[in-house]
Design a protein around this nucleic acid. Structure first.
Lengths: 153, 153
DNA sequence: AGTGCTGGGTTTGGATTCCATACCCAGATG
DNA sequence: CATCTGGGTATGGAATCCAAACCCAGCACT
């Protein structure tokens, strides 16, 4: 696979947007219902200008929508919410969380658990093939090039 | 969830290591069997000193092992290979790839496909709860705090 | 022995980005 | 009118990124 262009890969394209500590954490907070600039800034501890840039990028890339809204009786504010494309990152977020829980658990164990609201059971990310087989870490997989691939140059 | 410390989250801990364009791409290339410094550097197009630092970090964090090896008849070299902890990132990588394929497909469609070697079917990441229900993007989930959580402050 | 080539770096200097802090503006609120 | 608050922009120093140059060890050739 080394013969194919590194930048054409879908992982590279996703990393272009999300490959930054703050972008990931902003998306996480948006998933968790934090919506306002100030709340994000305080919770993350990120510099304000950096947050401005990250949010602009996420809006630009269509993962986040910036919307005016007016809490009743107050003046108009902005809120940032995930678009459907942004919400599709849930699998990525859960996969990151699962890895952290397994390999960087902290002293008191995992800090959070994501539950299926209907049944209360824990949610985890995993791999399956479209024939329905579970893919565990020992399963062999192979990467095949499709027409969309470009040779490196 | 905004009341809990942002840095304690497992996503934050994982992002600390992987939240960088190059780290993600280095791990991807290691999955794809690229093992040598020079090959990584050429394929990724990353500056050499940056690659040195990223590899050192990944080794430090236990995701990658640096091993001497000697191709027969040649002098000793180094190779970088994923440790079991590094290999556990496969779910994350596939989730990133799935998102890119869906939302940043490029003009000619997805460039690569990951297949189950035993049956040839495509591998994808998805979410299920431990009771066995499929979690799709519209399914409601809730985040609950565990003892390992810390209040923000 | 001397010269060259190659893998795996380190050094260097300039361009970016990060961060903290300060400042700004508009719309409530008193 | 003065003040507070949300959502930024401006500024300046520290850290990072990048490209290109340099370095060193070990083999290969002459």
């Amino acid at each position: 696979m080394a013969d194919y262009d590194s930048g054409t890969c879908s992982i590279a394209r996703t990393a272009q947007i999300l490959g930054d500590r703050w972008s990931v954490l902003v998306v996480r907070d948006l998933f968790n219902g934090v919506r306002r600039f100030d709340a994000l800034q305080k919770h993350l501890g990120v510099a304000r200008d950096v947050l401005t840039k990250r949010l602009a990028l996420l809006v630009d890339e269509g993962l986040v929508a910036k919307r005016p809204y007016r809490p009743e009786g107050e003046r108009a504010r902005h809120e940032y919410v995930l678009t459907p494309a942004g919400r599709d990152l849930r699998t990525v977020m859960v996969a990151l969380m699962d890895w952290g829980d397994a390999h960087r658990p902290g002293q008191d164990g995992p800090p959070m658990s994501l539950r299926h609201r209907d049944c209360g059971a824990e949610i985890h990310a995993h791999l399956t093939c479209s024939a329905g087989h579970e893919i565990d870490p020992t399963t062999r997989a192979e990467l095949v090039a499709l027409p969309g691939a470009k040779l490196a140059g």
